[in-house]
């Protein structure tokens, strides 16, 4: 029983990390219809920049305390990532906005590779130990079941950010402009929306979210390196599709579901398959779910039906 409960907690934590990343994916996709392959890599850059800033802060102001130091890391990393998102959109994606989907997609793969290479040039391939400024000493809400404060923080941060984004998109002027642009950016510009600015803004927000996600992930595992974005990127994309891409609540739902499926699946698959499968197949779940969802419900769990033609 404790084991199952623990697996559920593990799933929730991993799932909310996926959700955090998926929110960025889903925002960009919702507006542009583009899978920003580089999203995971912006996450990685965010984490590494934060690491740099935190190390700097720890050296310069050793008495700052844990949380202000972390905040300083975020204050540096989020704008850097935002700038990066803006530059990428401006330089690589904007020119291809009216091209068919293949072109921006291939460019996005290239950008993702480029970011990883740049990170390797700047930081090398080493694994860095990321300061765990939020406590990782586990609490025991139920006997035998553990959850660390950093994990609770991740759960809260992803829920809060999702709520904030929903408010932004549905209740504000900018949000209305975003929805209009998502519907059809040409008509939106005819209606007086500066579509280019809105798309840039979306990228900037998405990249900022990625940086926060990167710092959270690095804080949880206490590790940061130049390829840390790839796997969360892929999983989070799956989560976004599962929930219904373009739908913010869906990203959250999809992330949590995927996290649960992975942890419970990997935890119990051996019993279910009579020893044929085991935890070495953990990474397959995401891809299988992705395939199944896309085949039977291409719009995801909460997605709206969109027109067939792109």
């Amino acid at each position: 029983m404790e084991t199952l409960l623990q697996q559920i907690i593990n799933g929730l934590v991993v799932g909310s990390m996926y959700a955090l990343v998926a929110l960025g994916y889903t925002m960009v996709y919702g507006i542009l219809g583009l899978i920003n392959f580089a999203h995971g890599d912006i996450l990685m850059i965010g984490a590494l920049v934060a690491l740099q800033a935190i190390t700097f802060a720890q050296h310069t102001w050793p008495h700052l305390g844990a949380l202000p130091t972390l905040a300083f890391g975020l204050v540096v990393a989020v704008p850097v990532s935002m700038l990066m998102g803006y530059v990428i959109e401006r330089a690589a994606y904007r020119r291809l906005r009216n091209a068919p989907r293949l072109a921006p997609l291939i460019t996005a793969i290239g950008v993702s590779f480029l970011l990883q290479t740049i990170a390797m040039i700047v930081w090398g391939r080493n694994y860095y130990s990321f300061p765990q400024l939020i406590s990782t000493t586990p609490l025991q809400p139920v006997k035998g079941v553990y959850i660390a404060p950093v994990q609770i923080v991740i759960l809260i941060v992803s829920a809060v950010l999702m709520a904030a984004l929903i408010v932004l998109v549905n209740k504000t002027r900018i949000g209305r402009a975003m929805r209009a642009t998502a519907e059809n950016h040409r008509i939106a510009s005819l209606m007086g929306v500066d579509a280019n600015a809105i798309i840039s803004l979306t990228f900037v927000i998405g990249s900022g979210l990625a940086a926060i996600a990167g710092v959270m992930i690095a804080s949880n595992y206490g590790i940061a390196h130049s390829t840390m974005g790839t796997l969360p990127g892929l999983k989070a994309f799956t989560a976004a599709v599962l929930g219904g891409i373009g739908n913010l609540g869906g990203a959250m739902l999809g992330g949590i579901l995927l996290g649960l499926v992975e942890s419970i699946g990997a935890g119990y698959i051996e019993q279910f398959s009579f020893g044929f499968f085991n935890s070495s197949y953990q990474d397959i779940f995401a891809f299988v779910i992705l395939g199944v969802v896309l085949v039977f419900r291409p719009t995801g769990l909460l997605g709206e039906r969109v027109a067939d033609r792109a």
Partner: peptide
């Protein structure tokens, strides 16, 4: 228990939970 991960993974909570049981 015999558990598996990958040489790119960072999350081992699931398999460790199983190990712990």
């Amino acid at each position: 228990t015999r558990e598996f991960t990958t040489d790119k993974a960072t999350d081992f909570m699931t398999i460790l939970t199983k190990v712990k049981s």
